[in-house]
Design a protein around this nucleic acid. Structure first.
Lengths: 242, 242
DNA sequence: GCCTGCAATTAGGCGCGCCTAATCGCTTAG
DNA sequence: CTAAGCGATTAGGCGCGCCTAATTGCAGGC
């Protein structure tokens, strides 16, 4: 739980209820998408980008944004044709969901021995439905972890998150030794391959070849180099060796 | 997972999709309610009873039952004015959800140290959203338990459940020694009281007084008797001492 | 055997999130 | 400075689960 109170899934029950219902899974997903797409410097996000990420028609996005902006406590700041930003309440909720997501991933990986490439999908569903108590209990069980199994930072209860100091493999400008900072959770097949090759958060790696289209790296004690096309190389973030 | 394949939450995406969408939380809840209300001998269930249990208008029940009966694989057998029974597919799903529910309760209690009176509410939400893998992993982690923390039997993967051999405290016909079989999860305040008095599944208890309106019992080493009005006494099921 | 009372059903409507089609309006190229 | 192009919005519609109000039909009392 982050910030204020968490009402969970309160579905509209009476047709006579005049209040707009903004506590659904769908809303959560819009807020999460805005959080991610607006990046660390919190740029305004375009409707199209949201539509594409959410797999939804642009008209649906406009519709939802108007609702989110018109709520008593607005979730977003939205001006027509200008894109959208998270309002404080929206940011609070988005970070809460992100915290849920990453805690659940950690939990599935550490306690339930999930293979890493399966944690994301399960967390994606459950993140909307766990209670504050569940959140608190798994955090305690895990020793209040700061990172999930992909190396992503878990937002603290006060919603603060340190800025990332790592760079994508695809933008590295020299060969040499690095440490894996994080791996993307978006492509589970790739994730499985990376795991199998020893490319996991904290692992030392050596970048052995770079070209416009491909990046090659060797992890820990691995003998064979792993060759990643540019688009997949985006999925690995590295930092200089500690 | 029980029996056949489990499609989880597949929401309707296209307006053009002619197939009826029967994979929602709401459907799960209707099926569960029918399972419980039809009792061990699987009597037909009246619309009104369902409506009351689900907190929904009778018209809504009729509506849903028609849909559940009309599906390609019908979930229920339903004839107008005759009540409803689970069809094989409906029973399969209902038992699957019940298995989820009770596994989750056990998990929350054993692994996450929830107070017993809080497990039901959380399980009630999560039971609809966990994957087959999650189900299997928590079952394994718990050593494939046969009973949840209330003493209720957890349906096996093949959907079989032994018939209950216990009776409600309210229908006991003699004073003397018994063993607590199970306690209801419906009233969390009562559950907390029972727990505090040592009335938990497997605990030996002594029935010390019976009257039309009240039942008194003393648990294990407890000094004070616990007095329960008839309606609350329904919540405790006992069997003769083992 | 009819009639009344109540359970159950039908009819019609609502908010939700989504869709498509039509329109609008920024922005940039000529 | 205008016009095209495309991103964004509006308009209208759908299925879902739910509601209320009106109607139907079963069953028990006389």
């Amino acid at each position: 739980m982050i910030g204020e109170s968490n009402h969970h899934i309160i579905r509209q029950v009476m047709g006579s209820n005049r209040h707009v219902n903004t506590n659904t899974e769908s809303v959560d997903n819009y807020l999460k998408a805005i959080l991610v797409l607006s990046g660390p410097d919190e740029r305004a996000v375009a409707s199209t980008a949201l539509a594409q990420r959410l797999g939804v028609a642009p008209a649906s996005v406009t519709n939802m944004l108007q609702k989110l902006a018109a709520a008593a406590k607005p979730y977003v700041e939205y001006e027509k044709h200008r894109g959208v930003r998270l309002a404080p309440e929206g940011k609070r909720r988005a970070l809460e969901i992100l915290r849920h997501h990453r805690l659940i991933e950690t939990f599935l990986y550490e306690i339930l021995d999930y293979p890493i490439e399966e944690v994301h999908e399960e967390a994606e569903r459950l993140e909307h439905f766990i209670s504050e108590r569940f959140e608190e209990r798994i955090a305690a069980k895990l020793g209040h972890p700061k990172f999930d199994p992909h190396g992503h930072c878990i937002p603290a209860m006060d919603g603060k998150m340190p800025r990332q100091a790592s760079i994508p493999l695809s933008s590295v400008d020299r060969d040499g030794r690095f440490v894996v900072d994080s791996v993307s959770d978006q492509n589970s097949a790739l994730l499985k391959r990376l795991q199998a090759s020893g490319v996991a958060p904290g692992a030392p790696v050596q970048v052995v070849r770079r070209s416009p289209g491909e990046f090659a790296l060797r992890a820990g004690g691995s003998t064979r180099a792993l060759i990643l096309p540019r688009d997949l190389a985006d999925a690995v973030r590295i930092r200089s060796g500690d």
